[in-house]
Write a protein that binds this DNA or RNA. Structure first.
Lengths: 201, 201
DNA sequence: CGCGCAGCCGAACGATCGTTCGGTCGGAAC
DNA sequence: GTTCCGACCGAACGATCGTTCGGCTGCGCG
């Protein structure tokens, strides 16, 4: 079959066949280190181990790499909203499920979500991703408001402000969390308690 | 006096004399909108109402603008640590004071603090600012640890993680707070309660 | 009045950017 | 053995970047 020729690098002992996903991973990591604009295609191709012109043989361009990475992040986040724990039950427990799962997705898809949370909206691709991200945040905000209506939270919380602070707390993980340092299960519990119980004894 | 000649634009009805501070403000706002790298000196000079070459008559360069803005942000933050409320009293109350004041500084110095919190560390200037910011965060983290030792917080909090989440919650304000929408005093109370009391009733 | 100089500008500098193009190489297909 | 094609490369493209330079203008001061 002709499709078999696709497997494994044709040239010298090349361990990887340079799939799109592997190059997106390399790119996402580099984008996060230096920033999207400050990362050149030369940087990316060197990180992948090939020249700039060879790099273009595998990917359509810089923005396509960004788009693929953002797609992966958004798929992970929106996947949470469809889970049973996010659909069934009392608003507060549904919110808790989303928060805990969001921590997990942030951790497992860290490079991609980091990219998503740092967008400035300069290109059409970035604005599209920002719009989808806003959708997700509004779903969470709706649940906060529902929890307020149900009387499950402190009566003095401003639903909109509380939702922003909640998302801010969870999203701030990308600034410092690195895999392997803190067990993920412990982190999920820590965020859960911090958000819903607060710091004070 | 020769220093009087500095006042008011020499040419046609120019309202402002293009002080360094006013240009830094313009630059900080532009940097936040599009990102530092994506903002050209052409963009900045146009926002200031003069040409690119005239702009260079007032400022040393792009990085000098960034440095001036970061200086202002760091001065605001470190000023908090010296206030009586941050020095005297029980650890938890000192921490509360810092959190509440930090919200105020973030709000009043929004463009500059936003710039500080988005640094990637590409240049020497950025790395210097990041190091100072880390100093501030460690001061806060030390206070969280002290509050844990004093038994003033939930006994199961991990001091380091809790400090990160606390800073993350406060710093996330830059992502959505805009002056005039929510009264600042209300925001301070909302963050205070969210951090220390949590969401649940 | 005439000199100095701050404020401002147009034009151009070298560097670097994302992207394209023509071509080489070597294993697979027939 | 010849053809074919995917993987790869060097060189160059036009565009844009931050920065510099020389010169113009008109007010303030002596």
């Amino acid at each position: 079959m002709a499709s078999d020729a696709r497997r494994a690098g044709r040239r010298s002992g090349n361990p990887e066949p340079y799939t799109l996903a592997s190059l997106v991973e390399v790119a996402a990591r580099a984008f996060n280190e230096r920033g999207y604009d400050a990362t050149s295609m030369e940087d990316l191709s060197r990180a992948a181990g090939i020249t700039k012109s060879s790099f273009y043989h595998h990917v359509a361009g810089k923005e396509a790499l960004l788009r693929a990475a953002l797609d992966r992040a958004l798929d992970g986040l929106f996947g949470i909203l469809g889970e049973p724990g996010a659909v069934d039950g009392e608003p507060l427990e549904r919110l808790r499920h989303i928060v805990r799962r969001q921590v997990e997705v942030l951790a497992t898809e860290l490079p991609y979500v980091t990219l998503l949370l740092r967008l400035r909206g300069n290109t059409e691709t970035e604005r599209w991703a920002l719009a989808r991200r806003r959708e997700f945040d509004q779903a969470v905000a709706g649940l906060v408001a529902a929890a307020v209506d149900a009387g499950a939270v402190r009566p003095d919380v401003h639903p909109v402000v509380a939702a922003r602070l909640l998302s801010g707390t969870v999203n701030s993980l990308i600034e410092w969390y690195r895999p392997g340092r803190v067990p993920l299960a412990d982190l999920v519990d820590a965020v859960d308690r911090q958000v819903f119980e607060g710091l004070r004894r």
